[in-house]
Simulated scan of single mutants.
Amino acid sequence: MCRWLAYTGSPVLLDDLIYKPTNSLVVQSLHSRLGAEATNGDGFGVGWYDEHSPTPGVFRSIEPAWSDRNLRELAEHVRSGVVLAHIRATSGTAVQQTNCHPFRHGRWLWMHNGLLAGFSAMKRDLVLAIDPELFPLIEGSTDSEILFYLALTFGLEDDPPAAVARAVGLVEQVGRTHGIAFPVQMTVATSDGARLWTFRYSTEGQSRSLFRNADVAVLREQYPENPVLHDLADSTRIVVSEPLGDLKGAWHEVPESSCLVIEDGREELQPFRPAA
Rank of each mutant, 00 (worst) to 15 (best):
Q28W: 06
L116Q: 07
P21Y: 11
V26K: 10
N70C: 07
E76F: 03
G193R: 03
Y19V: 10
E204H: 14
G9Y: 08
V239G: 00
A129H: 08
G35D: 13
C100I: 00
G245V: 03
L25W: 09
W48A: 03
T187V: 14
I62Q: 03
A85M: 02
G45Q: 01
D231I: 01
V184S: 14
V127T: 14
H31W: 09
P224K: 14
P54R: 09
R166C: 10
P11R: 14
L116P: 01
N213L: 09
L137E: 15
V216F: 00
S24R: 10
R220P: 06
P255Q: 04
K123V: 05
Q185L: 05
G35I: 06
E63Q: 13
A194C: 08
R273A: 14
V27W: 13
N23R: 15
V78L: 04
Q185I: 03
S24H: 13
A214I: 04
E242A: 06
P54C: 08
L156G: 04
A94E: 11
F182D: 15
Q206A: 12
H101F: 06
S202F: 00
R72C: 02
H31G: 02
R107A: 07
E139D: 12
T93C: 07
A165S: 15
S67K: 06
W108P: 00
A214Y: 01
I180P: 02
H77R: 15
T236S: 10
R79N: 05
E51K: 13
K20P: 02
C259K: 01
T236H: 05
R72T: 13
Y223T: 13
L17N: 07
L152W: 06
T190P: 03
A194I: 10
A75P: 05
A38Y: 07
G140E: 03
E263L: 04
N99M: 09
F59H: 04
R266C: 08
I180R: 03
L128N: 15
A75I: 00
G118H: 07
E133C: 13
L116F: 09
